[in-house]
Structures are given as C-alpha cells and as structure tokens.
Design a binder for these strands. Structure first.
Lengths: 334, 334
DNA sequence: CTGTTAGCGCCTTCAT
DNA sequence: ATGAAGGCGCTAACAG
C-alpha cells in the first residue's frame, strides 16, 4: 500500500541511496555497468516512481511555472495558454493555469498561492491592481513576464501586441471601403488596461490623420453585459455609426448579436472589424474581417524570456517591452 | 535573497518552530494570546509564506488534482475544465490541466508525471489505450474519476452523457421535421471511444424504432481532416442525405464549412443538429439546433466523486457509472 | 565507483 | 502552553 521510495530500491538492488539518485539523474558515469543493470531492474521490479515533491524540496526548484490569465473567456487567452504549455512541456516544465476572472483579489490569491507552491516563475496577464505584489516579486528577482498588458515603470518584461497599429489598420480598412463614421467598443478601461487604452488611442490617431473628427459618442468602454445598451445608444444618434471596431472577440460577439437582433445587414448597414480572431470567422455570413494576434510567436517569446530569467541569464533585453504586429485578415464584413 | 522559513519566524518571535506550525494550522488553543500576537506580527514583518512543497512532503498530500483531457480542442473539454477548476478551488484544491491530444502515449506520460507530482487524485478523459495504468491505479486505490468516456469492467467511477438518448433526441427532432435520410458523422471509433459508439448506437436504434432502414453509407467515423472527403462521398450518393447529426462541436464546424463551400442552404438542402453546444449557435444563420451537455453538473459530480475518494469516503455508489441527460436546444437548423 | 552524512522546510508526537 | 527530536523522500558534497 505504502509508496516505494528510493530506500526500498536501494535495499532491493543492494546499493546505497545515492547510487540510486545518481542513476535517476542520469549520471551513469559514476557506476559500473553491472550496478546500473541491477538498479534498472530493481526499479522496474518495484515499479518505483521518484517523488517529485521531495526532489523539489531539496533542489529548490519545481520545474513548474504558473500562468495567470486575466480572463480565460477570451480566445486570445486560451490560445496563448495552449502555446505556452506546449512550449514549456518541451523544456520539461509543467504549467499551472489560473484564471483571475478580471478580479484583482483573485489574482493576488493566485500569485501568493503560486509562490507558496514554489513555482519557478510566472507569466501574468496583470489585472493592474496588485502593484505591491508585482514590485515585491521584481525586487526578489522572482522570474516573471507580463503578457497582453503591462504596468508602466516596473521594468517587468512584457509581451504586447502593436495595439495602436492594429487599431490603425482597422480604421484604414474601413476608410478604404468608404466609411467615415467609425465607432469603437471595448471592455472597461478602468485600471488602465493596456490593450484597450492603446487600441482606442490608435483608433483616434488614425482618424485624426485622415482628417476625420473624433467623436466621443463613438467610443464606448463598458462591461460586456452593458454593451447592448451602449450599442443602442450609438445607433440612436442622429449620425449613427456606419462601421464599428470590436476591441476583442467577446465584444465582436456582442456586436454580432446586436446586429442580428436589429436586423442590420453586415456590412451594408454596419461594417465590422474585430480585433482577435474568432473560430467562426470564416463560417459566418459574411465572413468576418479580423485582426489576429500572432499568439504562438507571442507565447514562445514569453516562454523564452521566462526561461532566461529562471536560468539566470538575465539579458538586458529582458527589461524591454516586446511588441508583435497584428495581422489583418481581409474578409467580407467591412 | 534567501527565502524566509519557519525557523526565521520562530527566531524572530522568540518561540519554537512547532509553535509557529501550530499557528499556521490554526490551532490557536495551544498558545497564549500573547504568543499568538507575537507570531502574527513576526509573520507580517518578515513577509513569511509557508512553503507548500515542504508541507506536502511531510503531510503526504498536495491538495492538488490533475485533469487529463483527451483533446482540449473540444468545447466540452474546456467547459468541463473551467467548472472543475472553479469547484476544486472552493475546496482548497489546485488543478493541473493536461492535454493528451488524443495520443495514448501522451496520456501515459501525463499520468506518470502527475503521480510523481503526488497529486491527490485525477479526473481523466481516457484515451482508452492505457489499461495497465488504469488498473494499476485502481489497485493502489489512487483516487480517479473518468469523464466523458469509460472503460468497461474496470469499476472506475465514470461521468457520462446519456449518449444514446442524445442521439435519439436528435433523430426525433429531424424526423419530426419530415426528414428520413439522416446521416451521422463522428470522429474515429478506434479504441472504443464511448460517446462516439453510443451516439451511433442511439442513432441506429432511433432509426429502427421509426421504421427507417439503417444505411452504412450514412454513418462515417473519421479523423477531422478527412471529414470533407466523407461528406463529399455522402453527397455523391444517389440518395444523398437530407439531414446530418454532428457527433461533436468540431464535427459541426466541418459540416458547416462543407455546406458553405457547396452552397447548401441549411436547413433546406441539409438539416443539421450538433451534439455539444457551440459559442456561435445563436449567431449563425440559421441559428443552430444543438444538444448540449450539462457541463457544470457533470463537472460538479466528478469533483464530488473524486473528493469522496480522496477523503476516503468510498461510497458504494462510487463504482457506478453516472449519466446525465443532454438538452435539446431547438433552433432553426433542422 | 559507491556509501555516509547532512540538509531542504514543515509537521507531529512526546515531554516538560 | 511550549520546545525538542525525528521523519517525509530526495539531493549533494565528501569520504573512502
């Protein structure tokens, strides 16, 4: 019933514990062919599995990393998670995924839990409200990488989309098709959530540079539950928008639902471009024009940066924010 | 730089390690008000966090469970994962998610890894090819619950959908709308994957009970990549099907793509019902009729059964397979 | 090449 | 109410 330990194997093979340990860690040079065979046999015979917990305790390294996403409902999050996990697996690291559900308090709990669990590092989509913790970790040189969002002035390496450029590309695609009354809808910008701020900023700049006036009534940042109301308000304006940019996949769904409910034909009555790709972009009628993020590249970069920190190769470039360009998927909704 | 340990706190507070340990575990009866205050103060002061790894080693319990999904690309998997994680969190357990990617070999590695990590239990969507491992775990009384699929004769508690009933409901909805040439498409049935087998079985029974002859050309079980070909074959039959049941969300997407490519109007040219709900069911034109699984209930039951095992409350009911009914979401594609 | 010894950080009797 | 001591399973010098 009780688990077989390294001592049991040692006894069975007639050698000492340390020899077994050597074997487990692949240091075969330190033992005779004969010993090796014996150990190998004993291990199979007893069906022995090393206890990673014990190993971690003595090595002070768990070969496990944590990912805390702000909200797992975004397709971007899930894609990033998959890519990160795949990559870390290749490097022999395991991954614990946590969903902060946009609640800073949950994020705090997860960070503390992960530290208690001695994970070797974390990739965080910061909610933006736990500055003290971020600073603490930074000071302790705890390996950490921010994803999707960043916190100014902390010097924590961050992987971001070229958000302004993405918004500009969206605006350009719309104006190229003759639209000028362009709106943008995003989730709330409380706590200065990077991508939302930057996308709105890019949107404004793009309008201005095209001589189109920025209208505040065309810019809404509200909770998903309130988007219907926002949209209705926009569409009751004298000059209602003829095009809209969705700040994320979830926003896009809300917009599409609204269009369906009000029988707005896309793109005739309302042109739509979404930031973030959605699984049904090609299925939808009309096919949905989107700007997708290079999730795999971004994930790989995050893994690379985190591993550098974990292995102590603190390159200078680590303190930089690294940006990736979005890709316009020209389809038919704009 | 180095982490603060229980000894540091003890020293700082001027008491012994065991007192701190008592404090950490909430056994305040064993110490004076004064001591408690001192300890509390020292912990804050030193910003001490208990090392869970060390605790796990001595307690022989990690308060962590593993989930191994067969394929994380199914919406069903992700919904289940979310629900399970949420529930376990409430109980103070953490979750490690692994994706076997439909490869038994990966599943095997993950199982071994999770055992090595000393997780307190696992919820597995079995690929079906690691009988020896399953048996080994069963014998060791390692807490384990199967989800979505089961392995006959192992006596491992399993949470399943009423698959036959779900397929029957689909057939009924289609025949009610006047269809009789009904096809079904699923992923491969190699390794006897429960839901696929049972759904096909339920489909056959439903046809027979309605006096419709079962035609093998209408039943395809192939890899996602080959579904286009399967569909083309079906549609080149003299008597091509006028309705089709999608065995899962991924199958549904393939069918919709096929319909789009071939300009088949749903449901006029082809009626469609999907098993598993999809995020865009309501968005699609026409809205998609689906049969959804009660993921939250299923997840909660799995958590309940696993916790029972972990806590040693091996109820008899544990050996049973527990089934949940699917829900028909009447929409417009059938 | 192999065995001995001393931790890793915490928990748990058992004394006091 | 508090402290001392041993142990969880493994690793890592250090001898031999």
């Amino acid at each position: 019933m009780k688990n077989v330990t390294i001592s049991d194997v040692a006894k069975h093979a007639g050698v000492s514990k340390s020899t077994i340990s050597q074997y487990l860690n692949g240091r075969y040079e330190y033992m005779s062919e004969h010993t090796r065979k014996k150990v190998e046999y004993s291990i199979r015979e007893l069906n022995y599995r090393p206890n990673i917990i014990a190993r971690s305790l003595s090595q002070k390294s768990t070969f496990t990393v944590g990912i805390i996403v702000a909200n797992i409902l975004h397709s971007f999050s899930t894609h990033i998670i998959r890519a990160i996990e795949l990559n870390f697996n290749k490097h022999g690291f395991h991954t614990i995924v946590c969903n902060a559900d946009d609640e800073p308090e949950k994020e705090r709990q997860y960070i503390e839990m992960l530290m208690a669990k001695q994970v070797d590092g974390m990739i965080i989509f910061p909610t933006g409200d736990n500055l003290d913790l971020y600073e603490q970790m930074k000071k302790k040189k705890y390996p950490i990488v921010f994803m999707d969002r960043t916190i100014e002035g902390l010097g924590i390496p961050s992987i971001l989309l070229e958000n302004e450029q993405a918004a500009e590309v969206a605006v350009k695609a719309l104006t190229d098709n003759g639209h000028s009354r362009i709106a943008i809808l995003t989730a709330p910008v409380t706590r200065n959530i990077t991508p939302r701020l930057e996308r709105i900023e890019g949107y404004k700049k793009a309008l201005v540079s095209r001589g189109i006036q920025v209208q505040d009534e065309y810019i809404h940042s509200v909770e998903v539950e309130e988007m219907k109301v926002s949209l209705r308000n926009m569409f009751e304006l004298d000059q209602r928008p003829e095009a809209i940019i969705a700040g994320s996949d979830r926003v896009l769904v809300e917009i599409l639902n609204f269009a369906k409910e009000h029988q707005l034909v896309i793109p005739k009555d309302l042109a739509v471009i979404g930031i973030d790709d959605v699984s049904f972009a090609n299925l939808f009628t009309p096919q949905l024009t989107t700007i997708s993020q290079p999730t795999t590249k971004m994930a790989n970069k995050a893994v690379e940066l985190l591993l550098q920190q974990i292995k102590g190769e603190q390159k200078l470039s680590n303190d930089k924010t690294i940006r990736f360009g979005g890709q316009l998927n020209m389809r038919q909704s704009h």
